[in-house]
């Protein structure tokens, strides 16, 4: 990696009364709504977990999901590196790291879908035959849907990058995509523990 010291970002934002950038402020407000949405789902999940048999989660495959969690963390890294790349105006490295993010994100989602087929196919855990199953599929399904939206957003960002829309002075939209992706990763970090390990 090229440099180690923190460097200056010369990104220009529209002047605003609070000095904050409107797009980033809007994104953080959106993340607050996502915090509330996943908190409500987690509260529901904990309520259901308490009412279903204690060892209901032993049917879940922890090793594969642990690797899957690692894959999602890698995708978070590549997004961070892509933002670092565009800060210095390196559009090529930005595009490469975004492609890597797409790869890792796609892998994560397909492993999740594969896990779903195994669980529902074998009938061990389905949304309709057990309360734990209902909560599990609701929460992880909602998270998977958010990953899917993130993948679409990643493809769009790649297209905008190849159209040369971003530079060292103007990469707020990459940073906003990064915020969304990292948030989805944070949600998985919490879900991985709450559902699989606890």
């Amino acid at each position: 990696m090229s440099d180690t010291t923190p460097h200056l970002t010369m990104q220009q934002s529209a002047p605003s009364a609070t000095g904050l950038d409107s797009a980033k402020l809007g994104m953080w407000l959106f993340l607050a709504t996502e915090v509330m949405l996943f908190s409500a789902m987690i509260a529901g999940f904990l309520d259901m977990r308490g009412r279903s048999p204690a060892d209901a989660h032993h049917v879940l495959n922890i090793p594969v999901t642990a690797v899957n969690t690692f894959v999602l963390i890698c995708s978070s890294l590549t997004v961070a590196l892509s933002v670092a790349a565009i800060e210095q105006g390196d559009q090529k490295r930005l595009r490469n790291f975004l492609l890597l993010t797409l790869l890792f994100g796609g892998t994560f989602l397909s492993v999740q879908i594969y896990e779903y087929n195994v669980l529902i196919g074998s009938g061990e855990l389905t949304p309709w035959n057990s309360l734990f199953g209902a909560g599990f599929f609701a929460v992880t399904g909602l998270h998977g849907f958010h990953v899917f939206i993130g993948l679409i957003w990643c493809v769009l960002t790649i297209i905008w990058t190849s159209q040369g829309k971003f530079s060292a002075q103007n990469f707020m939209r990459v940073e906003i995509f990064g915020l969304y992706w990292h948030f989805v990763d944070v949600v998985w970090i919490i879900l991985f523990v709450l559902i699989y390990l606890v």
Partner: peptide
Amino acid sequence: VDPNKEALQPHHYPGSRTYLLVF
């Protein structure tokens, strides 16, 4: 960074090395 002067002043984002450490 003082919140009221963020838009006009440069940021101090971490470099790639920090990201790798965090990873």
